[in-house]
Amino acid sequence: MADKKIIEVKDLTVRYGERTILENVNFHINRGEIFVIVGGSGCGKSTLLRQLIGLETPTNGEIYFENVNFTSADKKQKNQILRRFGVLFQSSGLFASMTLAENIALVLEKYTDLPDDKIEKIIEMKLDAVGLNGFQDFLPSEISGGMKKRAAFARSMALDPDVLFFDEPSSGLDPVTSASLDELIVQINRGLGTTMVIVSHDLASILNVAHRIIMLDKSEKGIIATGTPDELRNSPDERVYNFFNRIAS
């Protein structure tokens, strides 16, 4: 039987010069769950995400993907792991000079031997899944912010990744668009069994989608709470309770 843990973080420490952002952080992410990383501004959420997707190397500690040490993996191994990741960046990260179809086709052309007609079908399928069928030939500058996020979502799903990472998916979106994106995340998670790792501080969205949450704290330089949304909402820790119940401290 496959291991339940898909990602495991062990003793992760991140320092920029003299400044320590994260210290001895330990947690794991289970296969198929929607895992949310929360915390106030400057607590290291985005830093942690950049570590998880291999954009930065930790000062100390390791990150394991399916028991393979991602931190010390060589370039080839790292690329093989990255191929199983999809990332939705805060500002979408769509290539402005390419149409939505070209944005999605990029990884399919690089990593598969599929002929053009099959790639076109996959593009159509992915755009359809995020409600953007018919927008294949649009440039990112020609669509709205919410549509950009959806298009970037479709691009991140191009290779049917095992894990999808989201950096503040609801930032810059209106509540309705944000809610529909949440719905899409849940739907894709249920339907495709994709593990979702979300960095967010949008409380409504977090409580809506999360299976499990970790909360980071700036002064602790690490995790101060782990649990389900209900557990954290009723946490005895005042900082956690205040955050999840919108109480100013």
């Binding site: 359809d128 069928n133 495709l192």
Partner: peptide, 15 residues
């Protein structure tokens, strides 16, 4: 799981 997967990705009628 397969049914959900197909429901999400099977292209709908194009409009």
């Amino acid at each position: 799981n397969l049914q959900n997967f197909i429901n999400i990705l099977l292209p709908k009628q194009k409009e």
